[in-house]
Nucleic acid binder design. Structure first.
Lengths: 188, 188
DNA sequence: GAGAGTGACGTCAGGTACTGTCATCACTAT
DNA sequence: ATAGTGATGACAGTACCTGACGTCACTCTC
């Protein structure tokens, strides 16, 4: 006899995503998620720090990808070129998980609490990018500013990519948005 | 006989700030805040949507100031110049409330929950700035990108101003940071 | 292969944030 | 006087989250 079904964490993630999409984040209780996954509420909180975190478990790997891309940029690359490569790489990843990314974003956009959590993940991402730039020898405040700019471009590009479903691929939107940003900051 | 002491909202704000500073946000209960203000927990929640909001009541007026500054910028001003004027004006306001701003920021920095709330206020600010730019005829995505850049500069400048207490005035730090950003985005 | 862990889960009790509902009563307007 | 009105108190209830402890298939050791 197996005592428990495998992959309880995965089942909790699936159950949470389905319920949040179905009836909204606020109208879903942790008890319901746990029941749908065939587990108890207590077990949910052993896998996820809180009710929101279940939607953000993948953000760690995105951060790693960004940091590694910055780290492996050629020495000749400027700080902005390094982070540009990073957000384009992130764009590739999210473009691959297109439908999932869009569904997840719809859920987040519908709940202020989830938007808060998303923003702090992006802030952590900016902080990690700034670290990576400093390791490349970029001084403050240039490192922090470049990192914040990268995240800003990421946010705007992602939002545009989500809203118009029949448009360009995300990496392309990232690059275009960065060019637009350069134009905006140059002309003054 | 007066039935209640006046300015219950103000007393709640004061009590909350003092207790958060003294023993930290997470180690303070709403019941304690209410008791210190001579009120009940229920009354706290009639004045503030939640336990965090008590620290962010002033953010509305900051947002108004930014939006109005953008709106009243001369027609000849570029989008970046308009938001630059706005964050410098915000810098003046915060410089006037220097000690309060710093104490408040120390409390926020110590609590992830409060940082989340701060970030969503900044996001709302970016959104309001983008609206103001669109009313000036700026198209998307330039409006959103410029607004995000403004908030990014604001964040970085404010952080630098807070950490080195014996430095330049905040509006000056804002301007310098914006110049640094221009340098960073131009060189690639 | 018996005994000693070990780790993932369940069960239970409790604290705290937040909400809905109704009562109270100084104050105000007619 | 009388009838509101609005800020507050009192009380009950839900949901998030945590700590403590028990259970038992699995694994490791000798």
């Amino acid at each position: 006899m197996v005592r428990w079904q495998p992959d309880s964490r995965g089942r909790l993630e699936e159950a949470a995503l389905a319920l949040y999409a179905e009836r909204g984040f606020e109208n879903t209780t942790v008890a319901e998620i746990a029941a749908r996954a065939g587990l108890t509420e207590r077990t949910f909180f052993r896998h996820f720090a809180d009710k929101r975190e279940v939607l953000f478990w993948g953000s760690g790997s995105l951060q790693e990808l960004l940091v590694e891309t910055v780290a492996s940029a050629p020495d000749s690359a400027s700080p902005l070129e390094a982070v540009a490569a990073a957000i384009e790489a992130a764009g590739v990843l999210l473009q691959e998980r297109r439908d999932f990314s869009r569904q997840r974003q719809a859920i987040i956009a519908a709940s202020p609490e989830l938007r808060e959590r998303e923003l702090i993940k992006l802030a952590s991402l900016a902080s990690a990018l700034a670290d990576a730039l400093r390791r490349r020898g970029v001084e403050e405040p240039a490192a922090s500013l470049t990192a914040e700019v990268a995240v800003a471009v990421f946010k705007v590009a992602f939002a545009r990519w989500v809203e118009k479903s029949n448009k360009k691929a995300l990496p392309r939107v990232m690059r275009d948005s960065l060019d637009e940003l350069k134009a905006v900051t140059a002309g003054a």
